[in-house]
Design a protein around this nucleic acid. Structure first.
Lengths: 209, 209
DNA sequence: GTCTATATACGGATAGAC
DNA sequence: GTCTATCCGTATATAGAC
């Protein structure tokens, strides 16, 4: 029973470092994080960090790429599925995204923040334009506009509203907690409620007047 | 004509430093900004920075407090005005906030990002709970809910939606520009349109079904 | 008030033993 | 693979002349 899977019994040293790095980078950003702290959090020595990953920079890029892929990737996957309706996509997006962010609440602020410092280092190589603007979502959206089913506003305006309603609460969580005097558990409840509320709000918002 | 106002002819050295610091801090965050760069951007010497402000830390706190006050303050001012209706407040908020952010687009990401690193260093001393939760806005909101005029959802959920629709587009601007292949001018147009669109969307969203 | 030169500390990275 | 000890660049801050 103990020799069945040697693989995941205990996270490998490499994994431990990456996990510690992710947590710290997400919380304090690139330049706010010290390699010494990563090493300590991972329970290993500073030299080992450079042994596995050549430099702080390389380790950072790894975490950053992962974050970006998760941030953009989780949208594109839903957006590009032609077997679901527009309404289903919205519901799926809210549900999946909120679950993901509940586990990594600091990720979006980290990604967006670092993206501002190093503007096109990352965006240029992943080219999100292709994926999103030609996605099934946009086609269905424009189709519905043409049929007069929903109000005619710029797709980007709509996407900003939708993604914003999902992501923004995680970005301002410290402020909202302070304002509403909520603890982390209270906050999670509010977020869970949004999984069902957002699709409703969006539908109301899109109606032609 | 030239000796009328000696006050604002040319920004004082202190002002020049603070302006340079604000721009750089907003763009690169606290630990990503070097005092040398601030000095250079201000057109003065490094030693002068420490002469006017005792340390990088002190200078940062100044900029940070200013940002927080502007971020929270511009909300509270509108929220607390009992002479305007709920609908007017929403319109004012969108309009004022978007104008402000158009001039300092990097401010919210900076404030929120640094707030995460130093969680209660700042929020604890400004106590936004008092102001917001007892504001005229919340009272009018709850009044409308009781009268059945608008849907009954938690005020914080509603505030997150409203503020998020205003602020979030500025936070993801690099991404949206990349996706939509927009330049800065295009983007500003989208933001201006939101000044009139957001109140409409919000009203739709709030309607009882 | 403003500068040049410098002290001091800190953080990333490597050498080399085990 | 993992450690200790150390090197070295870089960034903040100050001393002291003008």
């Amino acid at each position: 029973m103990s020799d069945k899977k040697e693989k995941e019994v205990d996270p490998s040293t490499e994994e431990k470092i990456k996990n510690a790095a992710r947590a710290l980078f997400h919380q304090k950003g690139y330049s706010g994080t010290r390699t010494r702290d990563i090493a300590e959090a991972a329970g290993i020595n500073l030299a080992l960090l450079n042994y596995y990953f050549r430099s702080k920079q390389k380790l950072f890029e790894l975490v950053m790429i992962e974050g970006l892929l998760e941030f953009v990737g989780s949208i594109t996957k839903v957006f590009d599925d032609s077997t679901t309706t527009l309404e289903e996509k919205i519901r799926l997006l809210a549900s999946n995204y909120i679950d993901m962010l509940s586990e990594q609440p600091d990720m979006p602020l980290f990604v967006l923040s670092e993206l501002r410092s190093h503007p096109d280092t990352f965006l240029s190589k992943m080219n999100p334009q292709e994926f999103l603007m030609n996605s099934s979502f946009i086609k269905q959206y424009q189709q519905s506009v043409m049929e007069g089913k929903i109000a005619a506003i710029h797709p980007l305006q709509f996407i900003m509203n939708l993604i914003g309603m999902i992501v923004f609460p995680f970005i301002v969580s410290p402020m909202i907690k302070a304002i509403g005097n909520l603890d982390t558990a209270d906050y999670k409840v509010l977020m869970q409620q949004r999984k069902t509320l957002i699709p409703i709000w969006i539908e109301e918002m899109m109606q032609v007047k």
